[in-house]
Design a protein around this nucleic acid. Structure first.
Length: 290
DNA sequence: TACCAGGTTCTAA
DNA sequence: TTAGAACATGGT
């Protein structure tokens, strides 16, 4: 008996469209009101909302269990996280009501590192453009589950375009200077190259770094040229499941100044400050748009 | 057109 | 130790 080429799952507190707009990932794309596609972990995935917290994923059950369950952080009980919000934290309560369904992804460390190096002092649309150019130039072409998807009415048919995996360090280092210039990374080009070189030479063994303490991991990440505390905290939060990390960017600083009197005690949420940060960030960026 | 963007590095005090 | 300038490019 052949395995079904899709997986259906009931998932509470999960909103792919909000995740796509949350700023933690740059390769998720909203196709329509109930479909999202993404490229991650070297694969293509489409997610369809079926109603009543039920979702269809364009992959076999085995792939869903092996890869996407962890990537999408489905083991965590987000209702429990929500229950931790203090009664007097009015702003965060509003942020939760607005952003319910956002999960913190467990992304690939190298991809997250390079993406957030690119992110510094740029808008999210601009980051997305730059990341896509890098993938198209240096990334491996991905085999699409086209035939199997088209045979299912659950999913949106794929456009006839190519999808590329995020490149590894070797693939980035193989780019010519002209190619690297053409992705439009500007002065961050040198940061990308030196981070890639550190990983290639094994000075930065990103896989083994997952065993480090928060303090050591932060120290190692910030030792990379072009990686400061903001980018390091984003990598820790979005790729190393360090949910206590609280990246402070211009948006979050604005929130702290406006709603928290200029200082924010992250010890209010010792193990979930990063999740709270993401809710705040999403709320502040999107509340005026919708 | 001018301004700002999920910051970091470098330099001078 | 800290404040401030410089940094490349894209989106609005």
């Amino acid at each position: 008996m052949t395995q079904a080429q899709f997986t259906i799952e009931e998932i509470p507190f999960f909103d792919p469209i909000k995740i796509a707009n949350s700023g933690q990932c740059f390769r998720w794309k909203i196709l329509d009101a109930s479909h999202v596609e993404l490229v991650a972990l070297g694969r293509y995935l489409q997610i369809a909302y079926l109603g009543s917290e039920r979702f269809a994923f364009s992959c076999p059950r085995s792939e869903f269990n092996d890869l996407w369950y962890n990537y999408l952080d489905l083991a965590r009980d987000y209702h429990q996280v929500a229950d931790c919000i203090l009664p007097d934290d009015t702003y965060l309560r509003e942020a939760l009501a607005f952003g319910e369904g956002i999960r913190i992804l467990n992304q690939d460390p190298f991809e997250t590192l390079i993406c957030f190096i690119i992110s510094q002092r740029r808008s999210i649309p601009s980051i997305t453009t730059c990341v896509e150019r890098l993938c198209a130039l240096a990334g491996r072409k991905i085999d699409l589950p086209l035939a199997s998807l088209e045979s299912q009415e659950l999913f949106v048919n794929l456009p006839e375009e190519n999808y590329f995996a995020f490149p590894n360090c070797e693939e980035i280092l193989k780019l010519t200077p002209e190619q690297l210039d053409s992705i439009g990374a500007g002065y961050r080009k040198e940061y990308i190259l030196r981070a890639s070189l550190a990983v290639f030479s094994n000075d930065a063994n990103l896989q083994s770094w997952s065993n480090l303490s928060d303090e050591s991991l932060f120290e190692n990440l910030t030792s990379l040229y072009g990686v400061g505390k903001k980018v390091a905290n984003c990598v820790m939060l979005f790729a190393y499941a360090r949910s206590s990390r609280f990246p402070i960017d211009v948006w979050v600083q604005r929130i702290i100044d406006k709603y928290y009197g200029g200082s924010y005690d992250i010890n209010r949420y010792p193990s979930t400050a990063g999740i709270m940060q993401q809710l705040m960030f999403y709320y502040e960026r999107n509340k005026s748009i919708t």
